[in-house]
Amino acid sequence: MPVFKKDFLMTNLVETTNITLLSSFSPDFLASNNEFVYTVQKVRPVSDVCYVPLEMNGHLAGYLAIGRAGLHTPKYSPNEVKVFSWLAGFLNNGYCRTLKGGPVCGRTALLDAAGRVLQRGAEIDAVFAEIFGANAREFPSGGKMYSSRRFASWYRVNLHGESPVGDFVFHKGDKTYRLVFRRFDADPVRLYFPREPQAEIVLADRNPIDSIPPEASHTPRYDLTLREEEIVQCIFRGLSNRYIAFSLGISPETVKRHVYNIFKKCDVRSRTELVMKLAVSSF
């Protein structure tokens, strides 16, 4: 490894982001890097090597290395280098297509690793403006309002968490908005490229508390408060206390206190027992 860290071909590629040929270096330069050249030739003798950069969004994503086997074979010609360049572009474009999201509908937005909006529909754009402010509609995580700080924490937890999906609930006056998070499944290298979609945010059709039919509400039967009923719906969806706290904009300690009160009112000792009891009582 200490020898391969001296790969001057890769160093030149990174510094210039241009195609790099072994045959383009002078004999004196190669002599001064004899340790690396000797080690490479010992592993697999080649007459020439071509490093072609792979780029994404203007950033170097990697390289395609092509070597001509045998010490006495011809060096690469300009036409061959053009073919390698076209091949690298073809592979690079194909890989980019697997990462980028397609056209978005009115309720959908695509965000990068920092939480910046790359694409958005008109409907969710209006909601972002209302929730986070007009100046933060393109960067909800960077706004100055409390809602932006909540969103930034929730987005970060979902982007790096175990679950690829999550919910964000925000109350604005008499309105309640529910945003559903879905992390893209792709090569982990996606995270390292700026302006590359990392996740999809969708404005849900209904509020969390509306997702359960009115007749299934447990508020009158067990004397649950509106907040306790919201937490019950989150428990039904399998959310942990941490996710419930981020979704409802309250602290984990407050969630624990509400869960304790729900257990006491419903006379249960676990979430499983709560779900089973309330599911049966709904029919």
Rank of each mutant, 00 (worst) to 15 (best):
R183N: 09
V255E: 06
F246G: 04
R206A: 13
A199E: 04
A245K: 05
R257F: 11
H258A: 11
E196N: 07
I212Y: 04
L239E: 12
Y260H: 13
S211T: 10
I209Q: 09
P194H: 10
K256R: 15
D187H: 15
V232C: 13
R237M: 09
Y243V: 02
A199D: 02
H218W: 05
A204G: 04
V259N: 06
F193R: 08
F193S: 05
P220Y: 09
R237T: 05
V202T: 15
D210Q: 06
I209N: 10
N241V: 10
I250M: 12
D205I: 05
F184V: 07
A216G: 04
D223H: 02
A245C: 08
R257H: 14
A204E: 04
I231L: 14
R195M: 14
D210I: 00
F246E: 13
P208C: 07
R183L: 12
R227P: 00
P220F: 11
A199T: 09
P208H: 07
F246R: 07
P213T: 05
A216T: 07
P208M: 11
V202P: 00
A216L: 08
L239K: 10
R237N: 09
R242L: 11
V202R: 13
I250S: 02
L191S: 14
T219E: 06
D205T: 08
P197Q: 11
D185Y: 07
R183I: 10
N207M: 07
Y243N: 13
Y243D: 15
T225F: 01
A199S: 15
P214R: 12
P213G: 02
T225E: 05
A186S: 15
A204Y: 02
I201S: 04
S211G: 03
Y222M: 04
P220V: 07
P213C: 03
E253Q: 12
P220H: 10
